[in-house]
Design a protein around this nucleic acid. Structure first.
Lengths: 348, 348
DNA sequence: TTGAAAGCGATACCAA
DNA sequence: TTGGTATCGCTTTCAA
């Protein structure tokens, strides 16, 4: 029915072993035989059986990418960067690896389940992106799974989350604290003194680190830090919308708002518009290099550029083993934060 | 070394066949034995070998999703919708399927290569999204590949591209013409008469259909259609930026611009800002339900809602065989267009 | 309801 | 440089 390696071998009048060698190209084969084999492959329109070869070779050409939600442009860019790095068709590496994108939705259980599924597939590598819930039990479970993976020969990269010592996973951390602090100081530099902050979900690493950075920024300049000026929410637009209204309800005299990520910031914009709060012409936005819409869709802006896609790309490189783990196992990369500050605005 | 099914069988004191049955759950097994097996699985921390089982069963639990670029929010949303539909962990289906996301970058060759790679993996289903190059040779090659796939038992869905008769693939078409016409008429309804149009890459189905719809809209209302008011570009932000400038260079008296998709429209916004063209307060934007940023990031807008994610979800459903192909093999869904019109604006 | 055993289709080691 | 072949780990008849 379907064409197998043996069929090709028969047609080319060689052994299956030889065909395999030609196909994998990692073994010396006479030019003439190679010719014949390739011709047979072509004539029979032969397609290798992935599972069979993965079974025999004990490794597949699948690379897992865990993201919070692939519909979020942030993770889309990460996934895209990693993909071009691992080199499927069109990738610079020229390999033939396929990217398995897994939406965890931030759920610890799903995260674990996906890791098991990827282990089941004997994935060549797994890249975990974004923050993680700070929970001892979950962390232990994760570490166990990660260790299993690396022991089974899968390369594991933590991209934007804390290192996991003794698991064999390589970590590529983002400097969430530093990024947050820098951005808050940017607003302070613009003259703001009453700055609201919309944080991510409580209990997540990124949430905590960014908030710490924000506070550090305020402290460094002796700026007031009213606890009522901090609201927690999810990392999405709707949450940003609601949080912005809540902030203004608590204190309408705020002159700037820091949103924990771009999607949240867009929600803030929407809230200000819908609630009849004018968006001033001299609004200032500080965001990523990589989420162009956040920067370009709002007029009259100021940008603090924060390279990020490069982090994803680098993670891919590490996943594929083309780069060693950086000294200490960690590389610091600029964070993934966005600040939205409006001069002299909103008063409800 | 690694735990196998046999190990579990030994520990549970049953045959491998029984363990397999328990794990797959599609076969009657005594409750007591099942207990023992599951206990053994747990104790040994056994993880099924995917490739082995795929080889034996001649099918995998991988679902391929071909997109232009996963970094584009449009495709991110599509991929996300399809994923939740095919039911990995957390999906409603509760299955254990993994999504393989493939970035084609619009390249016909990559498209073909990826299809081969997915065939190699014995993918359970493949969903192709977005438009396709209108080229006889490529079409023939694609059809051949698609036929191979369906013959091998892979379910194939064309989502947003023309049907491919006799390939066994199910098509879920977007009404690009209708959507474009509707949106252009929306602008006409707002009083615009000098409307620019930024089209996608020449030679693609979506490009042609949308442009046709736009022209039909103009014609239906006797509105002028100056050929100079149409510029072609890529479906990305930068292209929109350049095209907008080009349009205004050609004719600064335009009062509205239709962009062939959201990313392009964002580029238009940026161009207007950078070139010092004021963005009026009463700008009107018509876009998707699903790309919130395009709608929310621009103040004072009017929206024409065009459902789209539902198409992706439906594609997933069809891919998984939970829904039959609609009558005639085609379902029409609202298009994926965005209009950006500005009243009484830009003059350079 | 359970077991025995024959594949599934490549890979890679050992010879030649 | 090439061939023979055991092996990978699971699924699935066929019997019992």
């Amino acid at each position: 029915m379907t064409v197998t390696l043996a069929d090709v071998a028969a047609r080319a009048q060689v052994s299956p072993a030889t065909v395999s060698r030609v196909l994998n190209g990692n073994y010396p084969v006479a030019a003439s035989t190679r010719e014949r084999v390739l011709k047979a492959v072509d004539e029979l329109d032969y397609v290798l059986n992935g599972p069979a070869s993965a079974l025999a070779a004990a490794t597949s050409d699948l690379v897992g990418i865990l993201v919070n939600d692939i519909a979020d442009p942030f993770f889309g860019i990460m996934a895209s960067a990693i993909q071009s790095e691992i080199g499927g068709p069109g990738g610079r590496a020229g390999g033939e690896r396929l990217a398995v994108v897994c939406n965890t939705g931030g759920s610890p259980e799903r995260e674990l389940t996906y890791l098991t599924l990827l282990q089941r597939q004997r994935a060549a590598a797994v890249v975990l992106t974004g923050g993680v819930v700070e929970d001892a039990a979950h962390r232990a479970a994760m570490d166990a799974r990660l260790r299993k993976l690396t022991e089974a020969g899968t390369r594991v990269v933590l991209c934007g989350r804390p290192p996991a010592p003794d698991t064999g996973a390589v970590a590529l951390a983002f400097d969430n604290r530093g990024g947050a602090q820098e951005l808050t100081e940017h607003l302070i530099g613009l003259g703001h003194r009453r700055i609201g902050y919309i944080a991510g979900p409580e209990g997540q690493t990124t949430t905590r680190h960014r908030l710490e950075g924000h506070r550090a920024g305020l402290a460094a300049h002796g700026v007031e830090a009213d606890p009522r000026w901090v609201v927690h929410g999810r990392y999405d637009r709707q949450s940003g919308y609601e949080a912005a209204l809540e902030l203004l309800r608590r204190d309408a005299s705020l002159t700037a708002v820091v949103a924990a990520n771009d999607s949240v910031a867009l929600g803030v914009c929407a809230a200000m518009r819908d609630s009849g709060l004018a968006i001033p012409g001299d609004v200032s936005v500080a965001g990523f290099d990589d989420l162009p819409f956040s920067v370009d869709a709002v007029p009259a802006l100021t940008t603090v550029r924060v390279p990020l896609a490069e982090a994803g790309a680098r993670a891919g490189r590490i996943a594929m083993g083309r780069e060693e783990a950086p000294p200490g196992g960690i590389a610091l990369v600029r964070g993934e934060l966005m600040v939205r500050g409006s001069s002299g605005v909103p008063r409800g």
